[in-house]
């Protein structure tokens, strides 16, 4: 059981808010929130990797009560020790996006650590929460060239700060890539809009390349566009392991611990952008509004305890 000091907000929060009680009023209030940092207050009898007083960070489980509360029960297999050089706010910004980016890069696209020289990765939606840490992880750990998309000066600068080698505008993606004298890319990570970029992704992917998306499509996707290229399409959903209680569920604890070391040695940095304060309904409204606008850069964090 964790006493929560800070949480951050992700697109999943407003998607659940908008859909969980669309047709009926819930008997019991549903607690949202899937990114937190805090201090362990009590542990279950089978927990061996944490003790009371440990500072932790985690995302949590899709089907269990979320972290927008003073306390939360969390499965120790999906939590990690908070980076010691991070405040609770800086740590709360990271778990969901960092696990998503890590799983997309290493478990779905199967990039090799230090083994992707002379290859190119296109990240669509570079300035969002997942894009911001995805650029950093890919650059620091795989040696790949990262092309990120952004459409405003502010978001382009943010992507450069995260380490992207090249920034292109996603409004005219194929032409932007061609203008940069790039014919195709080995890998694509889509963190923005799958329907909007499907044709461009199919045209830009190299034969035998891999595409991974985290955004569900609204219309049917024409998978045949990938057939002649023998290109692969993958989904990434960071709640899969906890949702299905997969045998490798503890790998998210390991990912968070590996990330902790990278944060502590300064190889990766927090993607926190704005901090709000208070376990308060109006604060959550304000942050959800910002998140829903699609103009949010990096992560928005809410601090509960000063």
């Amino acid at each position: 059981m964790v006493k929560i000091h800070a949480v951050s907000v992700n697109p999943v929060d407003y998607k659940v808010r908008k859909n969980a009680a669309k047709n009926n009023e819930l008997d019991e209030p549903k607690i949202l929130g899937w990114d937190a940092a805090g201090v362990v207050e009590a542990v279950g009898s089978e927990v061996s990797n944490f003790k009371v007083g440990d500072e932790v960070y985690y995302s949590g489980e899709y089907k269990r009560p979320g972290c927008n509360a003073e306390f939360q029960l969390i499965d120790s297999r999906i939590a990690g020790h908070k980076p010691s050089n991070f405040s609770f706010e800086e740590a709360a910004a990271m778990p969901l996006t960092a696990i998503t980016a890590w799983e997309a890069i290493f478990d779905r696209l199967r990039l090799q650590k230090n083994g992707e020289n002379n290859k190119k990765l296109l990240i669509i939606g570079g300035a969002g929460g997942v894009g911001s840490i995805g650029i950093q992880i890919a650059k620091k750990l795989t040696n790949i060239e990262v092309i990120a998309t952004a459409s405003r000066e502010e978001t382009s600068n943010w992507c450069k700060e995260m380490g992207a080698d090249l920034i292109v505008n996603h409004h005219d993606l194929e032409n932007e890539i061609k203008k940069a004298n790039i014919e195709n890319v080995d890998y694509i990570l889509n963190f923005f809009d799958t329907d909007m970029h499907w044709d461009a992704m199919a045209n830009l992917i190299k034969p035998q390349g891999h595409i991974c998306s985290i955004v569900e499509n609204k219309n049917p996707l024409d998978l045949n566009k990938l057939k002649n290229k023998s290109a692969a399409f993958h989904w990434e959903f960071m709640f899969t392991r906890s949702l299905f209680k997969t045998e490798d569920m503890i790998s998210q604890h390991k990912i968070l611990e590996e990330l902790r070391l990278l944060f502590e040695e300064g190889s990766l940095k927090t993607t926190i952008n704005k901090t709000f304060e208070g376990l308060d309904t109006q604060v959550f409204r304000e942050v959800h509004e910002l998140q829903e606008s699609g103009k949010s850069i990096g992560k928005n964090v809410i601090k509960f305890i000063s």
């Binding site: 969980a20 949202l32 509360a69 003073e70 959550f284």
Partner: peptide
């Protein structure tokens, strides 16, 4: 303990 939650799916501009 205090918690923030929802009982209805309402737009964000609804207080």
């Amino acid at each position: 303990m205090k918690a923030i939650g929802i009982t209805k799916s309402l737009p964000v501009d609804d207080k």
